[in-house]
Design a protein around this nucleic acid. Sequence first.
DNA 1: GTCTATAGTGGGATAGAC
DNA 2: GTCTATCCCACTATAGAC
Lengths: 183, 183
Amino acid sequence: MDGDTREKIREVALELFSTRGFDQTSLREIAERVGLTKASLYYHYPSKQALLTAIVAPLVEGWQSITEIAENMPHTPANVREVLARTLDVMLRNRALAGIFLRDPAGVVAAAGTLWEDMIDMGARLTSWLAGPAPTMAERLRAIAAMEVLGAALSSVTYLKEEVSDEEMREVLLDSAIGALRL
Amino acid sequence: MDGDTREKIREVALELFSTRGFDQTSLREIAERVGLTKASLYYHYPSKQALLTAIVAPLVEGWQSITEIAENMPHTPANVREVLARTLDVMLRNRALAGIFLRDPAGVVAAAGTLWEDMIDMGARLTSWLAGPAPTMAERLRAIAAMEVLGAALSSVTYLKEEVSDEEMREVLLDSAIGALRL
DNA sequence: GTCTATAGTGGGATAGAC
DNA sequence: GTCTATCCCACTATAGAC
């Protein structure tokens, strides 16, 4: 079962990257947990960077699609709400993945510069759409603030010991983000 | 001038840690920019970790004092506003420093575990105070969201090319954080 | 597909001369 | 206080047997 091994590797790597950080995680650690040797990892992924890329790519894609959708919508209150909701969904769906970026942005940048720049770019475009056409500085700051509120979906893991359902997060944070926008 | 060298080292290290990340910054790089050799750094700071600690300590202290002040206040709307304003001030005063945590949390954790746990602890206590006594889950999520909005003071650097004055940030973000709280 | 063994690199840190 | 020289270690990555 070849695909299984590859998948197991990605799973373990995701777990370790997102808790210890990318740089702090060695291939030896990953190999140990999977039950292989380091060398065998290289059979499945040609480099540590390739492994990271394989794990992270889906998030970048989700992010891209939502950005494109947003940019083809007129900036109305209803659409703002819609875009915020979709963005929140992407974040919730990729909660584990996001830990990688939260733990070690610098390591990710160094290893996968282009991917990272894509993420930054998407974030900037989404934020800029949220701010509306010809925004004032205050509007731009509030747009950033609203995006940060959605980010709370991720960082909340640090502060909350109990599990929170996706539904509750969706509801409360969407409302809170709109509050931050001061619409 | 001994103190000057130490200060220069801290300055350069702060600059590099907060742009490249802690782990990604080698002592050789720091030494080069300061105009010294690696070995000479060790005369001034006994380890890379000690250097990090020296740089970061002031922020932790500011954070601690504000937490203690908050916890001795009754949870009224006016006090909530006051605490948010003070927290925002601490963040704005330490904008450069914050980059260290944003770039490479994992590296900082690994190097300065205790300090980091202090920060997490303060964050948790402040957030918990903000949520009010016997809070519902929604109130706790909104408190986290409000704190994230203040964090926008820091991450905004990534998105905004122009400079924003501290005054404008203070005004807009405080208002936005209160919006996120849904008071 | 997995292993053992090892090359090659770069980092933090130390010894000791000046 | 600063230097040169060096140690030691952990890591990524590769070579080649099975």
